[in-house]
């Protein structure tokens, strides 16, 4: 199991109702189903992956979260998960707020553009960074809105979103982020994981 999955697993309450937005092959939903006995649903844009999910017994809708989240009623889930795809939406701010309308809490993970290797890549090479978590060339990246952990904090502040937990992941290790270590964590984290609510 990936370290991210472990971190997410810890954040999800047993028997809760979970919507995994961009659930891929359903691996995370399966882990949560098995370990936390959740009632899980998924949205996935890639049809082959949806079919794979169905063969695993998962309830998944083929769709584009950006267009389809509007069809979900308020407070219909305990948790919504957005695993490293916030930066891929045209309007990430709207998606974020939609998730918190649909679910009581949301778990967002982002590839941190403030990670020192990313910063160094741009500084020294003068080219858009290509790293383990950001493996694309600028001209074919699905990532439209890159942000740093600090940027995410800023958005939460202006949209009055409460960050309940904030976790840094680097090299398969995780640690807690808080306001006092935000600057350093923003520099040394590959991935930021946030448990948020409104």
């Amino acid at each position: 199991m990936k370290i991210e999955d472990n971190v997410l697993l810890d954040l999800i309450e047993t028997k809760s109702k979970v919507l995994d937005v961009g659930c891929g092959d359903g691996n995370l939903l399966l882990i949560l189903k098995k370990n936390k006995n959740i009632n899980g649903r998924g949205i996935e844009i890639n049809q082959l992956k949806v079919t794979e999910c169905l063969s695993k017994g998962l309830a998944v809708i083929e769709g584009d979260a950006e267009k389809d989240l509007i069809n979900y009623p308020d407070n219909s889930f305990d948790f919504a998960i957005l695993n490293q795809s916030l930066q891929q939406f045209y309007n990430p701010r709207k998606v974020l707020n939609d998730l918190l309308r649909i679910a009581n809490k949301a778990i967002i993970t982002i590839p941190n553009f403030g990670y020192w290797k990313v910063r160094l890549h741009l500084l020294l090479k003068g080219k858009m960074p290509i790293t383990k978590t950001l493996p694309y060339n600028w001209f074919d990246t699905p990532n439209l809105h890159m942000s740093t952990i600090k940027d995410f904090y800023f958005l939460c502040k202006i949209d009055k979103i409460r960050i309940m937990k904030s976790i840094s992941i680097t090299n398969n290790k995780f640690s807690t982020i808080n306001y006092s270590n935000l600057n350093i964590k923003n520099l040394i984290s590959e991935i930021g994981v946030f448990l948020i609510t409104k």
Binding site: R41, Q47, T51, L54, A59, I61, G63, N71, P73
Partner: peptide
């Protein structure tokens, strides 16, 4: 149909075959 089922929390999957 998917939206109607979704809005009542029914367990619904959906695929549109190209």
């Amino acid at each position: 149909i998917v939206i109607a089922l979704n809005s009542i929390g029914a367990e619904v999957s959906f695929v549109n075959i190209i």
